[in-house]
Amino acid sequence: MKRLLPHPVLTVTLTILWLLLVNQFSAGQVILGALLGWLIPFSTTRFWPDPIRIHQPLALMRYFVVFMYDIVLGSFQVAYMILRGPSHLRPAFIRIPLVLKTDLAISLLANTISLTPGTVSAWLSEDRRTLIVHTLDTGDAEALVADIKQRYEAPLKRIFEGSE
């Protein structure tokens, strides 16, 4: 089973991507998509370091909803800051100490930070313990770090690394 279907999550994702690409939801396309979804991970299996394990699918859904809401909110805030003019901005670099360990969780956190209100992740330190983030308008850096840790990092840790 493990050898025949090395990456079940990737297979499902590729099938859905194929259906979206051809924009046609007939039975034939579903079969072709599933075939490609099986063949591509199977033939590139040495390229994928380790299979993704999702501990709490429901938490992932909730994370996604929070994420979408924050993207919309973030874009409105950034738009307002741009229109108000550069003299009102208080840009700063802040350091976020990480508890996440896996590559996937860290990159998801960095991407989330880049898409949400007024922050862009700029650099992950060599020892992968600290994320340097550039913020557009910082009042209280401590509060911002605490907010990011509680809002994004804690759920990501629960979803991808289990609660232990």
Binding site: V72, S75, V78, I82, L89, L115, G118, V120, H134
Partner: peptide, 24 residues
Amino acid sequence: SLGLARLQDFYTRLHGPTKATTLG
């Protein structure tokens, strides 16, 4: 793009295109 043209330094300019343009 207005943010890209208007803001003062590179790091603040980065914010405009990443967020506003993506949502647009």
